[in-house]
Design a protein around this nucleic acid. Structure first.
Length: 600
DNA sequence: GAGTCCGCTCGG
DNA sequence: TATACCGAGCGGACTC
C-alpha cells in the first residue's frame, strides 16, 4: 500500500494545520486548519488509513492526543530525524547536511534543555513574528524540511537502513510519550514499608531517620570522633586517616578492602543514606503520581542513540526498590532483558560467526568458556567488556589476546573503530547514526603536538586525547547499534501488542479509555486514578518501562503468556531487521511476575 | 544566595 | 577483584 503522510503543525493560537502528502512528500491538497478541540477527532478519523504523522516534535504534540484518548500507529519526528541525517556520514553530501545551520539544528539544543509541552519550535527559539503567521511559516518550513529529509535518505548510500532507523527513532518517540503517559505501576505503600524497615519511621526533611542515626553513632564510636559527619567526604577521609586507615577517598570499594570496626557500619550507612537521598520518601512524593512513576524519556538523548531520561532518575532505579513496582490486581508484569546484547551485536556487526556460535541458544559468556577461549565466565565477561570499552591494563588487558585469536573479526571491528576515532574520523552504526567529530580543542591539541617546537607535554596530551576519543568511537559503534536493535525490538513489541489488543477486542475504540476506579489495587495507598494518570491503557497490554536492553509490559493476566511470546518473537524480528540472515541469536530472559523485584 | 564543580553511587 | 564505555542525581564544597 502506498504510504501517505499527514503533516501536522500548530499555530500560535493553538489551532492545528494539517496537509496530506504522498509518498514523495508532494502535497495532495492545500493545508487546512483544524481547531484544537477537533484535532484528536481528526486524527482518530484518519488513523484507519495508517498514515504516517509528520510533525516537528512528538514530545510536544503526542501528549495532547494521549490526553484526549487517541493513539497513533506511525509517525515521523522531524526533529529527531534531522539530528540523525544532519550528522550521518551516509548523508553527508545531502542538501540537508551541507546547508547552513538552521532552526532545526538550534532546536535540538534548546529542546534538549527545556521541554515545555505544547511549545512549538518557533516559540522555543523565541522568534518574533505575529502568532498566526509565525506558525504558518513554521509549517511551511516543516514541509520543506520533510522533503529535504526524504531526499537525503533516497540519495544516500544506504536508503534502506536509514529508512529503518528513522522509522525506529520515530516509533521510539511515540513509545516514550506513551510510557510516560501510562507510567510504571508503583505501590507507595510497599515502598514506604521498605523504607521504614531499613531506615526507620519517616521523619521530616533534614532529619536523619532513626536507624541511620544509630549507624552514625557506631561510626563515631569506632573512629573515636564524636562529631564526624559521614556525609562529608573530606571530613570523613580525615577522620579515617586519623584512625590509622590509609585511605585516599571514601569510596565504598576502597573501604571494603580494609579491616577496621568502622567499615561495616560505614558501608551500611552509605548504602542507606544513598537510598534515602535518591529514592526515599521525598522522591516518592515527587515522582509517584496516582500510583504511577512518570519519568520523561528522551529518545536520542545520548550521542550513541541511547535514550536519556529526565526526572526521577529512571536510568538508575536501584534493585533495592524494585519490589515497589507491582502490577495492578489482575495484571502481570512481563519483564524482558536482552542477554549479553552488546557482544551479540558486535558478533553480527563484524560477521564473526565464531562469536555468534558461542552465543547460540546459550549464555554467550558461557559459550566462550565452552569454546576453551578462557577458563571462567567472569573472565569471558571482563575480556569482552574490555574489548568493547577499550581496556588496556589489568585482567581484561591480559585476556584480550586470547579473545582476539578466537574472534579476530569481532576484535578487528572494535580496533578499526578505535583507530578511526584516534585519527578524528567519524564512525557509523549499523543503521547509519554517525559519531560526532571531535571538538575544535581536540584538533587544536593534535596539530599543536605535530607542530615544530611541540614539547613532550603537548605530545602526551594529544596522545591521551586521541586515545580517549578512540575509546569513545570504539564503543559508539557497538552501543549505538545495540540501541538501534532495542528500538526495533520495542517498535515491534508495540506493533504486536496493538494487534493483540484488537484481536481480543479490547481496543475497539481509541485504545484509551478512562480506567474505572474499581481497578485500583485494593489495599493500595496509591490513591485514586484521577488526574494526570487518570486515563491509562485500560484493558490492553502496554509498555511501561525501557532501560537500554530491558522492557516491562504491563498486561492483563490472561494475556501474559501471549505477551511473553510477542516479546520473544520481536527480538528475533529486530535481529533480522538489522542483520538480515546472519545467524546470531538475540537471547532474552523473560519473567512474568507480580513485581519487578521478582524478575531475575 | 545562586550557580557550578566534584565526589560518590546507582543503572545499563 | 580494577579497568574501560554511556548516563542521572544528590549533597557538599567552592566561587562569585
Amino acid at each position: 500500500m502506498e504510504s501517505v503522510y499527514i503533516l501536522v503543525g500548530r499555530r500560535g493560537n493553538g489551532e492545528f494545520l494539517v496537509e496530506v502528502l504522498n509518498a514523495g512528500g508532494v502535497t495532495l491538497g492545500a493545508a487546512r486548519p483544524v481547531s484544537a478541540d477537533d484535532f484528536p477527532g481528526y486524527v482518530l478519523q484518519e488513523e484507519p488509513g495508517s498514515p504516517r504523522w509528520v510533525w516537528e516534535d512528538t514530545a510536544s504534540i503526542y501528549p495532547v492526543l494521549l490526553e484526549a484518548g487517541v493513539r497513533v500507529e506511525r509517525a515521523h519526528d522531524l526533529r529527531l530525524c534531522h539530528a540523525i541525517l544532519r550528522h550521518s556520514v551516509l548523508t553527508a553530501a545531502s542538501d540537508l547536511a551541507t546547508a547552513a545551520p538552521s532552526r532545526w539544528d538550534a532546536a535540538l539544543a534548546i529542546v534538549a534543555e527545556t521541554r515545555d509541552p505544547g511549545a512549538t519550535l518557533f516559540e522555543l527559539l523565541g522568534e518574533d513574528i505575529d502568532p498566526a503567521g509565525e506558525a504558518d511559516a513554521g509549517f511551511t518550513d516543516a514541509g520543506a524540511e520533510f522533503r529535504r529529509q526524504l531526499t537525503a535518505v533516497a540519495e544516500s548510500e544506504e536508503p534502506g537502513r536509514l529508512r529503518l532507523l528513522l522509522a525506529a527513532e520515530s516509533a521510539g518517540a511515540l513509545i516514550a510519550a506513551e510510557m510516560r503517559f501510562a507510567g510504571l505501576p508503583w505501590r507507595t505503600d510497599v515502598h514506604d514499608e521498605l523504607l521504614t524497615r531499613v531506615l526507620g519511621p519517616r521523619v521530616g526533611p533534614g532529619i536523619r531517620p532513626a536507624l541511620l542515626e544509630k549507624l552514625v553513632g557506631r561510626i563515631r564510636l569506632a573512629l573515636g570522633d564524636p562529631l564526624v559527619n559521614p556525609d562529608s567526604p573530606p571530613e570523613l577521609t580525615r577522620a579515617l586517616r586519623r584512625a590509622g586507615l590509609a585511605v585516599t577517598s571514601t569510596r565504598a570499594w576502597e573501604l571494603k578492602e580494609l579491616d577496621h570496626p568502622v567499615i561495616e557500619p560505614l558501608l551500611e550507612y552509605k548504602k542507606l543514606a544513598r537510598l534515602l537521598s535518591a529514592n526515599g520518601w521525598y522522591w516518592m512524593d515527587t515522582w509517584i503520581v496516582d500510583g504511577r512513576f512518570h519519568p520523561e524519556y528522551l529518545p536520542g538523548g545520548v550521542v550513541t542513540g541511547r535514550w536519556a531520561t529526565r526526572g526521577g532518575g529512571a536510568l538508575q532505579l536501584p534493585k533495592q526498590v524494585r519490589g515497589a513496582v507491582v502490577a495492578d490486581s489482575g495484571w502481570k508484569l512481563v519483564v524482558a532483558d536482552a542477554a549479553q546484547l552488546e557482544p551479540r551485536i558486535l558478533a553480527a556487526l563484524s560477521s564473526d560467526t565464531a562469536m555468534a556460535d558461542a552465543g547460540r541458544g546459550t549464555d554467550l559468556y558461557a559459550g566462550i568458556v565452552a569454546s576453551g577461549v578462557v577458563e571462567t565466565r567472569a573472565h569471558a565477561k571482563v575480556a569482552m567488556l574490555g574489548a568493547m570499552y577499550g581496556a588496556t591494563t589489568g585482567e581484561s588487558g591480559r585476556l584480550l589476546p586470547r579473545l582476539a585469536r578466537a574472534y579476530p573479526r569481532a576484535l578487528a571491528l572494535t580496533e578499526t573503530a578505535a583507530r578511526a576515532g584516534e585519527r578524528g574520523d567519524q564512525v557509523t552504526t549499523r543503521l547509519g547514526r554517525s559519531s560526532p567529530p571531535p571538538g575544535e580543542e581536540w584538533y587544536a591539541a593534535q596539530s599543536l603536538a605535530s607542530s615544530e617546537g611541540a614539547g613532550d607535554a603537548d605530545e602526551r596530551r594529544a596522545r591521551t586525547q586521541a586515545r580517549d576519543w578512540g575509546r569513545f568511537t570504539r564503543n559508539f559503534v557497538v552501543q549505538g547499534s545495540a540501541a538501534e536493535w532495542a528500538l526495533c525490538w520495542m517498535a515491534e513489541i508495540r506493533r504486536e501488542l496493538r494487534k493483540l489488543a484488537s484481536d481480543v477486542g479490547a481496543d475497539a475504540g481509541s485504545g484509551l479509555e478512562p480506567r474505572s476506579p474499581s481497578r485500583a489495587p485494593s489495599g493500595s495507598s496509591s490513591g485514586s486514578r484521577s488526574g494526570r494518570g487518570g486515563v491509562v491503557f485500560a484493558d490492553i497490554p502496554h509498555l511501561v518501562f525501557f532501560l537500554h536492553d530491558e522492557v516491562i509490559v504491563h498486561t492483563p493476566e490472561h494475556l501474559a503468556a501471549r505477551v511473553a511470546t510477542i516479546v520473544e518473537d520481536a527480538a528475533a524480528t529486530a535481529g533480522r531487521h538489522l542483520f538480515g540472515t546472519f545467524p546470531v541469536d538475540f537471547l532474552l530472559t523473560v519473567a512474568t511476575v507480580d513485581n519487578y523485584g521478582d524478575a531475575k
